[in-house]
Design a protein around this nucleic acid. Structure first.
Length: 860
RNA sequence: GCCUGGGUGGCGGAACAGGUAGACGCAAGGGACUUAAAAUCCCUUAUGGCUUAGUCCAUGUACGAGUUCGAUUCUCGUCCCAGGCACCA
């Protein structure tokens, strides 16, 4: 082997070797147990960032490890290639989204290959290719036929800047998740997927995903937001109409004194028409539509509303209730109408006080009698029913049932379950997405495109418009078509699909990515699915993961796949963070814009003092980024990988440290030198089997087996690569204590075993390095094709064990003793310890606790 | 406000199932090698104390209680940090 560790040469060498020998190519093999390992595929932005590096390194370690354990490992990679950034970049740079995207993919593929990741590149896919989205369109039609996809006119989040609708999930605190501008409400015809049909099932299975972090399933549960209550119908006075509300507190129905409708509620306008409130209400509705969600979501937002001029009747006690429209009533939740019970709901109370509305107490707290005239806040707790007719005297929890039953009997309401989850709006008024395969015909209405016409290709000749508005509606060659039903001329749908649709089934497609006769080959998908281990960032805890679970159910219902949950185990890795730095004149600074001298940081641009800010997620805007390319050039892929694994356990945030990288690099160099030193001595020696070893060599032999055990369980059970690596470091430190110049043949045999062990244990983490050292240890072929080492439990046993002695729980002494010494002997020895006797003094011994092979605690 | 995590040396982090707190690495200090530097190797490094500088003593895992022979680990309360949801009827 070369004297000096030179990552650049060996990394290229082994990457070429792997590629030339098709080492990572896999196919279905019923004789082997499969393992499907998947990392979330990237958006092809043009460059990989440290988040990708970390994500894919973690995945690669698991993939390589499982392969050495004998599994048939599927480990694919592809591109989440549709989406707005491509359009924005295309407009800015006067290019085409397709060109921009494919160029980025090519650049990023090179980068990923430099990382030495064990992908089966033959399965690579890009979601923007017609061969891919063709099947998505096919599925859309199937869903449409089954009523799982439908069109409705609804209020949507509209971003003026991006000229498009946004899913609720893409609105963050009232702002567009992409551009950060306020989102307003607009009424449009939209395509939806009926995910709410699966709300209960998705929720229920949250508790049947033991391989998922609880944090994620909890977030999904909250997002689905199941609540149990009742639907109650309130007849409108003087009209043949009913206002239906959803409430979780039907026990308080006798205390409902007024009604609140969402401004968008259809009855808000209808009821006010012809009353003297008509204009006031219309003005209020207008104002609410204009006010963006951000101000409506602000904390302590002032509750306001106006009287609609209409009244409704409380079906339980006949009370005449004024109907208001109020800003806090949300059209998207429940029925868009709230029965207001000011005595027992904080919001209703606030509203009632403001507009001087009646307050009636119907649930009495255990030890006070609230007076509606003087009470200062609503009472939301439990108590005894009052002012509630026949139900007076009951506990309110009992009344909940009883009232629901009575309402059902009298046909004025019923028990029901409501979900916060709403149907998934997938329409996007954007160009760079998969076209929705529907046709608008003047005679037949809206009909699906003929299957033989698929894919409905996104026209590549479209001219992008400034501002991001879709060119499709004005592109005659695209919209002009014939109706698949009547054959007359018709128009194509111009909405494209949300990119989350593509990412909801790409993992299925990887099983048979080139299949051109069906969405996926049944045999392949049944062999590989579900994904055994999925790895990605927490930022997708709700959206992507919930949609993927939903899609899997749809595909299951359509008989296309057998599994119901797509991801058996999920690992959400933490973010990659770094300290920020800024200078008063230039704001945030990139790491290479800072000169470091001792504790001082100086801005290179102006020479001014730079201040170091808090550690935050790496982001371009904060400029606290490290370009993976620089690391690959300077240290190579193995060091980069090693640091990502060593600095923190995967689920935790990783703080970037230049010195930490150096440390990793130093470790690899140390191992390299060690192998160099021993290369000749171990060449013709067989690895030791431990027979007849004593002293230091026996210790090293034992340490070797102990390290195998430690690394295996750390990877297998917890993916704690940081502790796995530190265990190998300990072994290497111990190996460094053996002097090759005076070493016996026996010592060489023990060293040979240790060396081979180190190489194997490190091979999933630093694969190029390991391949090279495998040769240095006198072996042929690829270390990746060897079996993961086993350990001998018997070899871990020691003749003597260390016993610590405590007096009253405090450490006072220690001694080593024969491992199989009996309890009496251990106790004897502990009590005779000089230091221990000092602390016992003249006191009487109350109790002695002996923990085998560990400790003695003497209580006085 | 509600729901999840999480608070351990100068720093990243260890401690598997209640049993030696601080593995491993970084940084720092000291030394060796060198004409010198880099690289490398060795030693020290939680805090405080000392009539016995030790196989010493006290304190110490955010804070306060509790369970236990023994708590970083279990229970309750408080504070702080991060993430998610947020007028959800």
């Amino acid at each position: 082997m070369k004297e000096k560790y030179d990552p650049q040469t060996i990394e290229v060498k082994w990457q070429t070797f792997w590629e030339d020998t098709d080492l990572f190519k896999v196919s279905e093999d019923p004789s082997k147990e499969k393992y499907y390992l998947l990392e979330m595929f990237p958006y092809p932005s043009g460059k990989i960032h440290m988040g990708h590096v970390r994500n894919y390194t973690i995945g690669d370690v698991v993939a390589r490890y499982k392969r050495m354990r004998g599994y048939n490992v599927l480990h694919p990679m592809g591109w989440d290639a549709f989406g707005m950034p491509a359009e924005n970049a295309a407009i800015a740079n006067n290019t085409h989204p397709a060109r921009w995207t494919y160029e980025n993919i090519d650049a990023m593929r090179v980068q990923l290959k430099r990382m030495g990741l064990s992908y089966d590149w033959d399965r690579e896919l890009a979601t923007c290719r017609p061969e891919y989205y063709r099947w998505e369109q096919w599925l859309f039609i199937k869903m449409y036929e089954k009523g799982m996809a439908y069109r409705k006119e609804s209020f949507v989040n509209w971003c003026e800047t991006c000229q498009t609708v946004l899913a609720n999930e893409q609105v963050e605190a009232g702002m567009c998740w992409r551009c950060g501008k306020p989102v307003r409400q607009k009424k449009l015809w939209q395509w939806f997927f009926r995910i709410t049909d699966y709300a209960e099932d998705l929720l229920e299975y949250c508790d049947r995903l033991p391989g998922w972090p609880e944090k994620v399933t909890t977030m999904q549960k909250n997002w689905i937001g199941r609540s149990v209550g009742a639907e109650i119908h309130f007849p409108v006075e003087g009209r043949d109409e009913k206002i239906t509300v959803f409430t979780t507190r039907q026990d308080t129905v006798f205390g409902a004194t007024f009604m609140c409708l969402a401004p968008e509620h259809p009855l808000t306008t209808t009821l006010s028409r012809g009353t003297d409130q008509e204009e006031t209400v219309a003005a209020f509705i207008d104002r609410m539509a204009l006010s963006d969600r951000s101000s409506r979501a602000v904390e302590a937002y002032e509750k306001e509303g106006v009287f609609t001029g209409a009244y409704c009747t409380n079906p339980m006690n006949g009370r005449r209730m004024p109907v208001y429209t109020a800003n806090f009533a949300l059209m998207e939740y429940g029925t868009g109408a709230v029965m207001s019970v000011p005595a027992h709901d904080g919001r209703d109370f606030e509203f009632a006080r403001k507009y001087d509305l009646e307050i009636v107490v119907v649930v009495q707290p255990p030890d006070e009698e609230p007076d509606p005239a003087t009470m200062t806040e609503a009472y939301a707790g439990d108590g005894t029913m009052v002012n509630s007719g026949d139900f007076d005297g009951l506990h309110n929890r009992e009344a909940m049932e009883a009232i629901a039953e009575r309402m059902e009997m009298e046909n004025v309401g019923k028990k029901t379950v409501n979900y916060r989850l709403r149907d998934w709006g997938i329409s996007r008024q954007r160009y760079w997405g998969a076209p929705i395969p529907m046709v608008h015909c003047n005679d037949c209405g809206i009909v699906p495109a003929a299957e033989s016409d698929l894919p409905i290709e996104l026209p590549e000749n479209a001219e992008l418009l400034k501002g991001g508005k879709s060119p499709l509606p004005s592109l005659e060659t695209f919209i002009k078509t014939t109706c698949p039903q009547c054959g007359r001329s018709a128009r194509r749908e111009t909405d494209t699909m949300d990119t989350f649709v593509e990412s909801s089934w790409y993992f299925d497609r990887y099983c048979s990515p080139r299949c051109d006769t069906t969405m996926f080959d049944k045999g392949a998908v049944d062999y590989w699915m579900p994904v055994d281990q999925y790895i990605g960032g927490v930022e997708h805890a709700i959206l992507h993961l919930l949609y993927s679970r939903y899609f899997t159910r749809v595909l299951n219902d359509l008989g296309l796949i057998d599994c119901k949950e797509p991801f058996t185990r999920l690992l959400t890795q933490g973010m990659v963070c770094k300290e920020t730095a800024a200078c008063p004149a230039h704001g945030f600074l990139f790491p290479d814009e800072i000169e470091t001298s001792g504790e001082e940081r100086v801005c290179r641009k102006c020479g001014g003092q730079a201040t170091v800010g808090r550690v935050e997620k790496m982001s371009k805007s904060k400029k606290n980024v490290i370009d993976p390319n620089v690391l690959l050039d300077r240290y190579g892929a193995d060091t980069t990988r090693l640091f990502c694994l060593f600095a923190a356990p995967p689920e935790r945030d990783l703080e970037w440290s230049e010195q930490g990288v150096e440390g990793g690099h130093r470790f690899l160099n140390r191992v390299w030198r060690l192998f160099n030193l021993w290369e000749d001595a171990v060449r013709d020696v067989a690895p030791s089997d431990g027979e007849g070893l004593t002293g230091d060599l026996q210790d090293l032999y034992r340490k070797t087996h102990g390290t195998i055990k430690k690394v295996t369980t750390d990877i297998e059970e917890r993916f704690h690569f940081n502790t796995a690596i530190s265990a190998v470091m300990e072994l290497v430190n111990e190996m460094n204590g053996v002097d090759p110049d005076t070493a016996s043949r026996e010592a060489a045999a023990v060293m040979k075993l240790a060396m081979e062990t180190v190489v194997k244990l490190l091979s999933p983490m630093v694969p190029h390095f390991a391949e090279e050292l495998w040769r240095a240890a006198g072996r042929d072929g690829s270390v990746l094709l060897t079996a993961w080492p086993g350990y001998d439990e018997a070899a871990l046993k020691t003749d003597e064990v260390l016993i610590v002695v405590q007096v009253n729980g405090k450490l006072r002494g220690r001694f080593t003793i024969d491992a199989d010494a009996d309890e009496a002997a251990v106790r004897e020895r502990a009590l005779s310890d000089e230091q221990v006797r000092k602390f016992i003094g003249g006191k009487t011994i109350k109790k002695v606790i002996v923990v085998k092979s560990k400790l003695v605690n003497i209580v006085v």
